[in-house]
Design a protein around this nucleic acid. Structure first.
Length: 315
DNA sequence: TAGTCGTGGGA
DNA sequence: TTCCCAAGACT
């Protein structure tokens, strides 16, 4: 059915694929898995420039990661966001120890590995002949099949229909690259696309596929963050909440404080916007806290908002 | 199933 | 500025 398209795709991939991506330069499942977790909801550029190499330098092997403390893993993840990814990465390393499993069913049972990542690891690390599914692939599927709306089940069915069982590894890598380079969310290059002859959306307007769901505005939440200082040390707590779990931060209040603010910060999260007023205090702290020097704080994993707050104090 | 979970790139 | 959205998982 897609024989000619598959042939076009193989040639396109040989000539235009992103072969230089570092996680394509290895057969080791460990760095491939790390890259897949990092790349969840995160752009390639960000991972490539700031996180992939430092993380692997700090934890070169699966065992090194398993033997690390969770605090160390979170520190390496600092600034990347979705910190549950880091804690699940650590958990999975401790479960597997020597080697990541090869099958989709075993992989998907591990913390932080869903259907999408399980297929990606199986396909890229172990060359298992299964199709992958991610934002790039989804966009191509919507367009090739001319579908504006679909659930996961329908998308997986389309993925298996379009799949090239003869050259699964190259096909999957190519799908990522076509989605990233040609079949983008807001821009297409249909003239150079291997699916040009079979794409249904090309007959219409590709940018109308998939249908955009209008987002709801996120609420603004106000907080009051107090940086307590005593003997050149600062009061921090390690969060035990679901939000930013495991991350260190200064003392937060919902209510306005009887202090002179040193400034305000804004932090944009996915589901709310934070407007925080920052205070500096030398009075006693009633909450249970840990006191750290400025140098010690640099070794802790802090969220973006806490970094902004602390920066206000230092200037 | 819809909400929760971070941050930054780019238009 | 404001918005979308990027190699999703979990509840």
């Amino acid at each position: 059915m897609f024989k000619q398209a598959h042939k076009n795709l193989q040639q396109w991939y040989r000539e235009n694929g992103r072969h230089e991506l570092p996680w394509r330069q290895t057969n080791d499942a460990y760095p491939i898995w790390v890259s897949e977790i990092m790349l969840q909801q995160t752009q390639v550029k960000t991972i490539l420039e700031r996180f992939y190499f430092p993380f692997l330098k700090k934890f070169p092997t699966l065992q090194d990661l398993a033997n690390a403390r969770e605090d160390e893993v979170l520190k390496q993840w600092e600034g990347l966001g979705y910190y549950t990814r880091a804690r699940n990465l650590h958990k999975t390393a401790q479960i597997c120890q020597n080697k990541l499993p090869e099958t989709v069913s075993e992989l998907v049972a591990l913390p932080g590995i869903g259907q999408s990542t399980a297929h990606a690891v199986a396909a890229f690390a172990y060359k298992t002949p299964v199709p992958i599914m991610d934002a790039n692939v989804k966009r191509i599927l919507y367009r090739v099949f001319g579908v504006k709306k679909a659930n996961d089940k329908a998308l997986w069915q389309m993925a298996y229909k379009l799949f090239d069982e003869e050259h699964p590894f190259e096909y999957n890598q190519a799908m990522m690259d076509i989605g990233s380079l040609l079949c983008q969310a807001k821009q297409t290059d249909c003239d150079n696309c291997p699916f040009s002859d079979v794409c249904k959306a090309k007959l219409d307007d590709p940018l109308l596929y998939p249908e955009k769901k209008r987002k709801k505005r996120v609420p603004i939440r106000s907080k009051h963050i107090v940086i307590h200082e005593h003997n050149n040390k600062f009061a921090l707590r390690q969060r035990e909440t679901r939000f930013l779990n495991g991350m260190w931060g200064f003392i937060e209040h919902d209510e306005e404080q009887e202090l002179e603010p040193i400034g305000t910060i804004k932090q944009l999260y996915s589901h709310f916007h934070l407007h925080a007023t920052i205070y500096h205090s030398t009075s006693v702290v009633e909450e249970e806290v840990v006191w750290y020097s400025k140098k010690e704080i640099e070794t802790l994993a802090l969220s973006g908002a806490d970094h902004k707050a602390f920066a206000l104090l230092k200037t």
